[in-house]
Design a protein around this nucleic acid. Structure first.
Lengths: 206, 206
DNA sequence: GTCTATACAAGGATAGAC
DNA sequence: GTCTATCCTTGTATAGAC
């Protein structure tokens, strides 16, 4: 369709991105339900009309923003630091979870947005596609890491372990974000859960 | 203050309860954020003005409803069927979790409301008190049940196990409610998690 | 305590100029 | 593509009669 790319298009794309970044920030601050188009316009430094021009309506904004956040998450999720030390694999597994439990703006934004997406999907089936897809990809990745730690485990056992660990992380993340659980404690709990799931209760366990 | 209780008070109390029940249903259907006072009025068969008369404002409705739901949850949570069969205690523990994973209107309502409360608390610190209190009580109860299964475990180990299991249940519950995980699978996963946490990997595990 | 009627505000969305 | 101005729906909350 687009036979050429002029400066106007570049500017437009930049504005689009600015809007999405602003939306991510605002969702982290006020939630999906608390996102106001006017406010987003101010945050992104554009007019409200422009947002409608680019994203059709409020639902469009939400959908694109959640996609945007999903893509962005792959950046800090994609930590490949191979090597073959003995329990190197376990560390890698732990890392992949601990990366989601950090008090960094981007991580918070992504976690909050994910929680919001999950909660909204309870009432809005339109969101379930994204949710299921991203969730499955994540679980699959975790199952792979688990497989490296437990080479003898069956594929289904690995898949179920992965489901439990990812579901647990979501639960812990929500407790952290809702101010009921400290970040440090959440980190300890997930690490210990990994230990339990991989059959290595660490010191102090029963 | 109230020196007597006449028929008018009885009716008023009934209406109050009807409103709270309606609110619970509506929250389960549309979420906390989707709760509309007019709609609630219709659902409860009263006028909107009456709701404001009884609950002051929208926030008041929410707070009372969440209390109401919390109290109601104790009913089906309070299953005491003692006896001292060998792994009687484990069954009791499993039951206490499986009670939260049933496709009954009341259970759904409570689970959804709980998820909404959790999600709302991320942006509204006013809700964190209720959340922390109810969560702590639940975790404590679970720790007790765990203690019966693992008499030799330390108190902290039990508390941490309880935290992991309750957080996992919340995560699984959200996945079920958001239509990404079947109820049966959620039940299997929590039962298996209990097995793993109590150190008895069931058949098929690695 | 409970209702009807209504004021009032906020927010989503569009029109039309540039 | 982008803005300013504006419309209009929806939803919270109150006034005042009964």
């Amino acid at each position: 369709m687009a036979t050429h790319t002029n400066r106007g298009d570049r500017v437009a794309t930049d504005r689009r991105t600015a809007i999405l970044e602003g939306a991510a920030r605002l969702i982290a601050r006020r939630g999906v339900r608390g996102l106001r188009v006017e406010e987003l316009a101010a945050e992104a430094g554009v007019s409200a009309a422009l947002i409608y021009y680019h994203f059709k309506d409020r639902a469009g904004i939400l959908l694109r923003t959640l996609e945007f956040i999903g893509d962005r998450a792959e950046r800090y999720t994609a930590e490949r630091c191979d090597g073959s030390t003995p329990d190197r694999h376990r560390r890698e597994l732990e890392q992949s979870f601990l990366l989601e439990l950090q008090d960094l703006p981007e991580v918070r934004e992504n976690s909050i947005a994910w929680g919001e997406l999950r909660a909204s999907a309870v009432f809005d089936p339109a969101l379930r596609g994204d949710l299921a897809q991203a969730g499955a990809a994540w679980a699959h990745e975790v199952a792979g890491l688990l497989g490296a730690v437990l080479p003898v485990a069956s594929a289904t056992a690995l898949a179920e372990s992965a489901e439990r660990l990812t579901a647990l992380l979501e639960g812990l993340s929500m407790r952290w974000l809702s101010g009921v659980l400290s970040l440090e404690h959440a980190q300890e709990l997930i690490v210990e859960a990994i230990a339990v799931e991989t059959g290595r209760p660490s010191e102090g366990e029963n």
